[in-house]
Simulated scan of single mutants.
Amino acid sequence: MSRTMTRRALLRGSAAAAAGLAVAGAAVAASGQSATAMDHTGHGDHTGHGDPGLQPFDEVYQGRRITGRPVEGGHAAHHGGYAVTIDGKDLHLMQNADGTWISVVNHYQTYGDPLAVTRAAVDKLRGAVLVPIATA
């Protein structure tokens, strides 16, 4: 909390956010849909938000074996439906709402597909071993 932020201002902001959520909930209710019954046309079976056109890859890039493939379950499916490894170690990828991709190595730069973000991660690692993170 900043020095200029008072408890009163924080509570006022929290109340405004809660009011905004209430208005959004009322708008969904008025539209006749629940949050769990929203139309997901074009989103496959909702096991992941991944693009069904994404192809698997298996190549050597900068001397590192990189592989990627669509997945249909588990944690990777929740973050875009794509599993990637660098030299057999999992690289955690996430797909943004706009369809771009980020990884734990390149978290602040977006890429157009899993292959591009994986290659960028290899570049950023500069030969270092990828240490997988616990995502559970």
Rank of each mutant, 00 (worst) to 15 (best):
R3E: 09
R7L: 13
R8F: 09
G13Y: 04
S14D: 05
A16L: 11
A16H: 06
A17M: 09
A17K: 07
V23N: 02
A24S: 06
G25Q: 06
A26P: 00
A27G: 09
S31N: 08
S31M: 06
A35M: 14
T36R: 15
M38I: 13
T41R: 14
D45I: 05
T47V: 14
G48Q: 08
P52L: 13
G53H: 14
L54M: 08
F57T: 05
D58L: 03
E59M: 08
E59A: 04
V60R: 07
V60G: 04
Q62Y: 00
G63V: 13
R64H: 14
R64S: 02
R65C: 01
I66R: 00
T67A: 13
T67D: 00
G68F: 11
G74M: 13
A76C: 07
A76L: 12
A77Q: 11
A77H: 10
H78C: 04
G81L: 01
G81P: 02
Y82P: 05
Y82H: 12
Y82C: 11
Y82W: 08
A83S: 13
T85D: 04
T85F: 09
I86P: 07
K89Y: 07
D90F: 11
L91E: 01
L91S: 01
H92E: 03
Q95Y: 02
Q95A: 08
N96G: 07
W101L: 10
W101A: 04
I102P: 01
S103C: 03
V104R: 07
N106Y: 00
H107A: 08
Q109Y: 03
Y111T: 05
G112S: 15
G112C: 07
P114I: 11
P114H: 10
P114K: 03
L115Y: 06
L115C: 06
A121N: 01
K124F: 12
L125W: 02
R126L: 10
R126N: 15
G127K: 02
L130F: 12
V131I: 15
I133F: 07
A134S: 15
T135H: 13
T135K: 13
